[in-house]
Design a protein around this nucleic acid. Structure first.
Length: 222
DNA sequence: TGTCCGATTGGT
DNA sequence: CCAATCGGACAG
């Protein structure tokens, strides 16, 4: 624990240019599929209150494109207290609570009033791994962040992060690992059997052979 | 207010 | 395969 805490606090692991937060323009594109794909390899950082870095490389994402996507909470323009975050400016966090016990972390894209979002489904742990172990009550590194609910627990992302600005200091994304196109796989999204014709849309993206991806893909293609 | 159910997880 | 666990969405 002490070693991890110190490393995080001293922030010496990577050059400053790699720790720069992504600008809002990164999230402002009008095609969620492009952004979901581009996010692979970037690093999600959610520091502790004491400033220790807790982070992981994004290895799995899903695009949700309301209002014309039956799997999206914003389908058909649904705008409620819960989905309000999806209508905010790009680079806003959309956090929701599901199954009575798990949080999910999404990034709002496009522009204000267009409810597009990218779900972050899995990370490869990098920094603050001991914090993650304590929060998850397990030691197996592979189980720490290999799912959308798991990674929120590991990074201590809860309701209070809803509507957070990803260009701010609470939580952000920065340059991570170089990804080549051949590593990027796509297939149907997980857990959306209710979405009828949208159920099979290949709007899930992941890094081929990465052991932190949440589930072994049924179909996989480039 | 009542009912239904989920963008999951972990254990049998 | 199935239970956990509770807030959101919507009908009435």
């Amino acid at each position: 624990m002490d070693e991890q805490v110190q490393k995080g606090a001293l922030d010496l692991e990577m050059p400053a240019r790699q720790r720069r937060k992504l600008p809002r323009s990164f999230y402002a594109g009008d095609d969620p599929l492009v952004i979901a794909r581009n996010l692979l390899g970037y690093r999600l950082v959610a520091p502790t209150e004491d400033g220790n870095r807790v982070s992981g490389i994004i290895v799995e994402t899903e695009a949700y494109m309301g209002p014309h996507d039956k799997a999206a909470h914003s389908y058909n323009g649904r705008r409620t207290k819960r989905t309000e975050a999806m209508y905010q400016q790009p680079g806003t966090a959309y956090i929701f609570f599901i199954y009575g016990m798990h949080y999910h972390f999404n990034i709002v894209t496009n522009r204000e009033s267009i409810p597009h979002a990218i779900l972050i489904r899995a990370l490869e742990p990098e920094e603050g791994i001991e914090f993650m172990r304590v929060r998850r009550h397990i030691t197996d590194e592979r189980q720490l962040t290999s799912g959308p609910g798991k990674l929120c627990s590991a990074l201590a992302i809860d309701r209070s992060y809803n509507m957070a600005d990803l260009t701010g200091d609470l939580i952000w994304i920065e340059k991570g690992r170089k990804i080549v196109p051949a590593e990027i796989m796509t297939g149907p999204r997980i857990g959306i059997d209710y979405a009828e014709e949208y159920k099979e849309m290949p709007w899930r993206f992941w890094l081929r052979d990465n052991i932190f991806v949440s589930r072994r893909p049924r179909l996989s293609s480039r």
